[in-house]
Amino acid sequence: MDDTNTISLYHGESALTRTPLFFTNNDSPADKDSKIWNAFRQGNREALDYIFKEHASNLFAYGTRFTKDQELVLDCIQDLFVELWNRRQALNETKSIKFYLLKALRRRIARTVHGAKRLEAITDEVQYLEEKMNFSVEQLMVAQESDQARKAGLRRALEGLTKRQRESIYLKFFQGLNNEAIASVMNLSEASAATLVSQAIAALRTALPKKS
């Protein structure tokens, strides 16, 4: 704890303090995220544990869309948490921890996979690296569809999307991000993100005609 506890040394009385968490179950998701994030920024290790448990599996699921190298994704997640902690006092506020982490992990994987040498890559460079990332279509579909023809049609349609369209659809349908968040994660303008999403939906809908 940076702000509250001081340890009593051994020559003093025996003492015990527990590190508390800073939100209640009545908070809205945005308020809860805000509070947990602020506790994290103030150096609360339980906030870090909480964030890890809430998001690590999902970050892994997202990261493994970009590369088959699972150890690389695990290393990136590890480095991400350590770096966030070490830079915690300089972090901005956020109302969506999930979005914040997805964005940070994406950049980290881009740098790691494509070997950016400099730690502080300029935005254009990151964008260039991200262009090269391949968002995998594997396992991105298709459930509860008994009609094999529809299934095959949808799969072809997904494969026909650009990788950016696929990722925008993934972020929208599976991560529940809005266009603004998608734009931020993917380093796009909000208008471009909206276009990507609507083009992707249109292409998929065309490939999968309305059921008669």
């Binding site: 699921a61 396992q139 999968l208």
Partner: peptide, 9 residues
Amino acid sequence: LFDDQPVAL
């Protein structure tokens, strides 16, 4: 139709 089957950790 879209069902996520992520690589499990």
